[in-house]
């Protein structure tokens, strides 16, 4: 039988960190996505342009480079700016927080596109009807748009989640002890690289499989009350 030399529990802890980072980043990405889509669809030109620059730039640059840029670049940038203003600042990012912020920021751009499509899929007539009933813009968003948007956004968000959970492996480069990093540590100690990375890959595969099943359940939930043609 497979001998993990006592490193099995470590991989399990890494798996938990991976899932935590993934879920927190997804939550952040969804918030940014809704905001970004709102900006893209708003009447304000400045907001629209800002959102377009955000999605264009983020989707054109590799995640790894963005992670390096945000994790190492931001503290230096802030320190330099503070230095020029005469402050002596020492910034150190917590790897977990930095990982979540980075991934959330990157996948927020992808979620923006998903939500933009979803918002546009909501029938115009419903919004007009709500206006005719005298609802305010915020009330329309809360009562009409938000409950329905999930139906259109879930397939796209599922894709974003699949890419995101795989991208969490990249934040092992900023030394966060998630699944990839723990596998590397175990490899260094046991000299069994194939064994540990293969197990890690199977754990990622398990996450993917579970995600597919959960997504199907969620889609059934989001489509409740909709008649199928």
């Amino acid at each position: 039988m497979l001998d993990l030399q006592g490193y099995g529990w470590m991989l399990f802890e890494g798996l938990q960190v991976t899932l935590m980072v993934g879920l927190c980043s997804l939550a952040l990405a969804i918030c940014l996505g809704i905001l970004g889509a709102g900006a893209k669809l708003s009447g304000n030109r400045l907001l629209r342009m800002g959102a377009n620059v955000y999605t264009t730039v983020i989707r054109g640059i590799p995640e790894l480079l963005l992670i390096l840029l945000i994790f190492y670049g931001t503290p230096t940038l802030i320190q330099n700016l503070a230095g020029e203003l005469g402050y002596d600042l020492r910034l150190d990012f917590n790897p977990f927080l930095a990982g979540v912020m980075t991934l959330g920021f990157i996948y927020g751009a992808f979620a923006t596109e998903v939500f933009r499509g979803a918002f546009q899929s909501i029938p115009k007539g419903q919004i007009e009807a709500a206006q005719a009933c005298g609802m305010h813009r915020r009330l329309i968003f809360r009562r009409i748009i938000l409950p329905q948007v999930w139906r259109f956004a879930l397939p796209g968000l599922g894709n974003v989640w699949m890419v995101l959970i795989k991208a969490t492996a990249l934040i092992s480069v900023i030394q966060l002890e998630e699944l990839m990093r723990t596998a590397s540590i175990a490899m260094g100690a046991t000299r069994l690289p194939f064994t540990f990375f293969f197990i890690a890959s199977l754990l990622y595969l398990a996450i993917t499989l579970a995600s597919v099943l959960i997504q199907q359940r969620l889609e059934v939930w989001a489509n409740r009350g909709i008649r199928r043609a």
């Binding site: 492996a169 596998a183 690289p193 194939f194 990375f197 293969f198 990622y204 595969l205």
Partner: peptide, 18 residues
């Protein structure tokens, strides 16, 4: 279903095991 980084390590480092 698995991250590219794992696949890369599996082949680059994992090859050493064999």
């Amino acid at each position: 279903g698995t991250p590219l980084l794992v696949q890369l390590f599996l082949i680059y480092y994992g090859g050493g095991q064999f």
